[in-house]
Amino acid sequence: MALLEVKDLKVYYPIKGGLLGRTVGYVKAVDGVSFTIEPGQTLGLVGESGSGKSTTGKAILGLAKITSGCILFEGKDITEVVRKYRSPYKKSVQMIFQDVYSSLNPRKRVLDIIAEPIRNFEKLSKAEERKRVDELLSIVGLSSENAKKYPFEFSGGQRQRIGVARAIALKPKLIVADEPVSALDLSVQAQVLNYLKDIQKELKLAYLFVSHDLGVVRHMCENLAIMHNSRFVEFGTRKDIYENPTHIYTKRLITAIPDINPLKRNDNNERRKLVSAEYEEKRNMFYRDGSQVYDLKQIKDTHYVALP
């Protein structure tokens, strides 16, 4: 049974306008997205900013209001439950945030930050709670004396570890990681990513890994969904996407990955020009009216592409 199943998810925001401030239209942030995540598996959600990838993640956590569609968690329909402030579902699904500076309340000590979910769901004595926080800190590689400190005393990478410790405090089954490393220095990124992988093995976690960085996603994910204009343009395994990109948008994204070998620079530039030309040429083939994404079509057992 799939851990998480999302069916035809839509998130629309009304546009107010006119003399009386009525709703005159909608911004379709997410427009009909479906996918499943198996236990312990990582699904990468890739797209440019504004493609709706973060909103998809937020909708799963109840941070964005779902317009239509449904979400099944371990087979149960929890679409109505996600917006409730407390439910068993909330305990099983957690989030890691992009902005490590604003995701920790500056007025709270690390102890209180990490203990917040524990206090909401479990009744522990002060000593037990402290022990749990120390354990969590050690899992993310921080010593227990850090518990009395405030967030501003830590570096970006350390803050993200505190965020991770908080997210795994309730032993969740799924973590939505919204660009978890894009605010960090490159040198720290790999470190945090490796932590995330280690923790995944240890706790048998599933990730929904939202990112714009195909390099990072390749490192982390078995399955990938490419998002463009609020819809999926391609969905498949890592192999499907990287070795056989079929949608022109995916092709463009993949050729845009920087290569560290300087000898290939000219080759790469040539390739990019070719793909770019192909994109302009075939735009109308892959998009209805030049921008609307078609429904996904299965082209191989694991590989889906949005085609007419």
Partner: peptide, 13 residues
């Protein structure tokens, strides 16, 4: 800010 979103996802009233 994200710390508010974080509290929401953690089931805080």
């Amino acid at each position: 800010l994200d710390y508010v979103s974080a509290s929401k996802t953690m089931g805080t009233h």
